[in-house]
Write a protein that binds this DNA or RNA. Sequence first.
DNA 1: CATGAATGAGTCTTCATTCAT
DNA 2: TATGAATGAAGACTCATTCAT
Lengths: 209, 209, 209, 209
Amino acid sequence: MGIVERKQREKESRLRQIQEIAAELFYKKGYAETSLDEIARRAEISKATIYLYFKSKDDLYYQIVEPALAELSRRLIKIAEDTEEPAEITVRKIIDATRDVFFNDPGSYHLVSHYRAAEFKRLLPKNRLDNLKSLMRSNFHQMEQAVQKGIDQGIFHNVDAKLVSIILWNCFMGVIQFQENRMDLESTDYRKPTIDAAVDLILKGLKSR
Amino acid sequence: MGIVERKQREKESRLRQIQEIAAELFYKKGYAETSLDEIARRAEISKATIYLYFKSKDDLYYQIVEPALAELSRRLIKIAEDTEEPAEITVRKIIDATRDVFFNDPGSYHLVSHYRAAEFKRLLPKNRLDNLKSLMRSNFHQMEQAVQKGIDQGIFHNVDAKLVSIILWNCFMGVIQFQENRMDLESTDYRKPTIDAAVDLILKGLKSR
Amino acid sequence: MGIVERKQREKESRLRQIQEIAAELFYKKGYAETSLDEIARRAEISKATIYLYFKSKDDLYYQIVEPALAELSRRLIKIAEDTEEPAEITVRKIIDATRDVFFNDPGSYHLVSHYRAAEFKRLLPKNRLDNLKSLMRSNFHQMEQAVQKGIDQGIFHNVDAKLVSIILWNCFMGVIQFQENRMDLESTDYRKPTIDAAVDLILKGLKSR
Amino acid sequence: MGIVERKQREKESRLRQIQEIAAELFYKKGYAETSLDEIARRAEISKATIYLYFKSKDDLYYQIVEPALAELSRRLIKIAEDTEEPAEITVRKIIDATRDVFFNDPGSYHLVSHYRAAEFKRLLPKNRLDNLKSLMRSNFHQMEQAVQKGIDQGIFHNVDAKLVSIILWNCFMGVIQFQENRMDLESTDYRKPTIDAAVDLILKGLKSR
DNA sequence: CATGAATGAGTCTTCATTCAT
DNA sequence: TATGAATGAAGACTCATTCAT
């Protein structure tokens, strides 16, 4: 009994290990410049072994990106459920959750921070592409809802909620990416305070007078 | 006589044509996934012809990216010269100039919106890398100066100018990128109003109270 | 158990097969005019397979040339150890060993008979180049020592030992090369008797009076 | 009138200049590794211009190699005409003439010192190949005749004349090649004395007792 | 006569993927 | 399950050759 379970656990850990290494490389070097050879070498397994766990390079990529995005989606949906909560808090919670998921799973960084519609279209089969799109749309939608709630609650100016979501979302992404590049040089991680400051500023703008 | 001139003009137009096609592909698909084969096919020339105009793929990339960034640098430096001008106007001018340059030269999109320090380090020789870095730093610096001016003029809160620059800059980049991906589906170009709204919001935050 | 060994043997035989075919082509056509495509075709393997065994074309070349030269070096050093032996015999032994190594490994033919300092300098990394140079110098040195011994023993005239070595060495190489070209037409292999006759003549010249 | 002549002279000098540069490169780097681009660059003409004077790269090669070999052939035939002359002197004359021609025309170096039957067969059309072969055979034949004359005159031992010719010829070639490689390092030109010493030695061997 | 421009064919090299063991 | 070995397809780059001017 225990043997089967152990095998199962080992298999999963192996799988996750591949994913983690691949995620880091995909993020650092991009999809095309990441070779299965390097992933295999770092994971200290044979290249062929990767094919036991993933059908193709695309598949590996998808299997990294989808779970992170799905997890974020679940969390944002949960956060958005509380319709009574002041919008400002909801917005901050969404940002926090997003940052949290991304910090814990650098692989998903790649997806979002370097997301290029055209690239995905070439890379993924339609159903997978659609799934990712729908997840992203959902996440984006939660932010939009929160901003709209703020407007309805009279906390925020009467602005275009969608537009504000775009701004918040991109500000977040921009900061991440900017600081990533910076971290190549400096070692200190300023991502959290920078994001917080950015959100403060935008919220101040939303609430001012 | 006129013959030489015409030849010259033809050569330059050919060169620009290659650059434009390459810029679009680099932007859409990234450096690694763009093949010279495809560039040649789209430009309806032979692959070898590209090598008449550019020493290598790296070189082609650099020749696309550098001029746009240099042009932006020139414009921003000029804008920043007027130290009397109210900071808010200067900030808007910087944003406008940036957008202007980028809209006229989609190639530079790629550099900035997908800029990855690590990738460049592998791609470019040291002197070219340094040149790009210095241009980017200069551009960023102008924004920082403008924000600082606003603080000194008592128009903006006493915030970290550098941080605000990061936010503004990334907001800009984020909006561009977001809308780019969006434009793959819809055809309307919302980039300008979205950027303006974003800047409005951030400036409002900076000035509030 | 035996499986692993058999695999090992197969791998080595494959490697040697590639080397043999490559050696022949390098010899017949020179480095630049020998394509990996042709090597692969003749070995009835894929071009990519070559890269499983050798890091590059240069590497393949070096791996062919170095072992033969090193083997020759070992043998000549051993022969030269006997300082009592009459010089004439030592010289003949050196020639015999050289011929032996070269006949058993046509790849090394190329190196020595077509050796061009300039070509190697472009082809090989410094440490490999140095290694080959040092091997060649060592081999040459053994001959020089043997001739000097003959002079000291009073068997040979008092000539410049270095010069005589050059003559002997090149005579050997020349005969090989000449006969090689000839063999393209005739099929009989006159290399051994021709070399022997050449050495006889030169030794006679050294000893005359 | 004079104009036509000047043009003619200019054309010939241009032609010879191309040949000289090409000869040097062919010799130093080999046929395959010498590019018309480099020849053109060094001659400060356009690559296309080379095609005004030579039908192809092969043709250029042949036009370099053939005249030198033909000139040598003419001289050797003349030398061999004097059947009364002591064989030793004739042999030395042949060697001197050979060296002379080669020193004055490094292009022919390449042909003979790096002559590879197989390469030529691929490179040249049958009639040209046959012509070169016949020239080389003729040159070789003169040496053979001279040695035979020495035997008939009772000056040389009764050896195989053909074999001795091979030895002499290759000794010459070997020394040239060896010293060429050496000259890459040292600058002094030891080719003449080394060849002379080699010939002395061999002649001594031929005459001893 | 001379050349700048263009290109097709070929070269080395990499890599995702398959398969026998 | 795991892997070493093999490969087809593709990519960057070079070069001899042609041609319009």
